[in-house]
């Protein structure tokens, strides 16, 4: 039960930071996205993101910050095996499934749907 509560709180807190970046910081959606990815990557560099995932589960893995975490994670893991080249190859090893899924589902959605000026 506590897992759900912590997932809700941590996930919500990350999204709230994103909303504040847009509303108060006046960042564009693309800037906000990149900022959160970089923040996740840096946190993992200091070894802080994995404890957050252990604590909040999906609350930390679903938001885009976990993509940054995966980038750093893959790079560090491969670097241990293959040195500097591993940083380049490893970066997309863990994240490849996410990137491929985004491309494939984006393509399918673009085939089926036509954009509309829909109100919120």
């Amino acid at each position: 039960m506590y897992t759900f509560i912590f997932a809700f709180l941590v996930g919500g807190a990350i999204c709230a930071i994103g909303q504040l970046l847009m509303d108060v910081g006046k960042l564009t959606p693309a800037h906000t996205l990149s900022t959160l990815v970089v923040a996740g990557a840096i946190l993992d560099g200091f070894g802080l993101y994995e404890p957050l995932i252990d604590f909040a589960g999906a609350g930390a893995t679903v938001p885009i910050t976990s993509f940054g975490n995966s980038l750093t994670h893959g790079a560090l893991a491969e670097a241990e095996k293959h040195g500097l080249v591993g940083v380049v190859t490893g970066m997309f090893e863990v994240t490849s499934s996410g990137i491929s899924a985004a491309i494939i589902f984006g393509f399918i959605a673009a085939l089926i749907f036509h954009s509309k000026g829909k109100v919120n």
């Binding site: 847009m22 509303d23 564009t28 959606p29 954009s115 509309k116 000026g117 829909k118």
Partner: peptide
């Protein structure tokens, strides 16, 4: 609507939030 939003802000497909 769609043509102007894309011209000045974001394409509507992008689904950007508006203040």
């Amino acid at each position: 609507h769609n043509a102007t939003e894309r011209q000045f802000r974001y394409p509507v497909d992008y689904g950007a939030q508006k203040p």
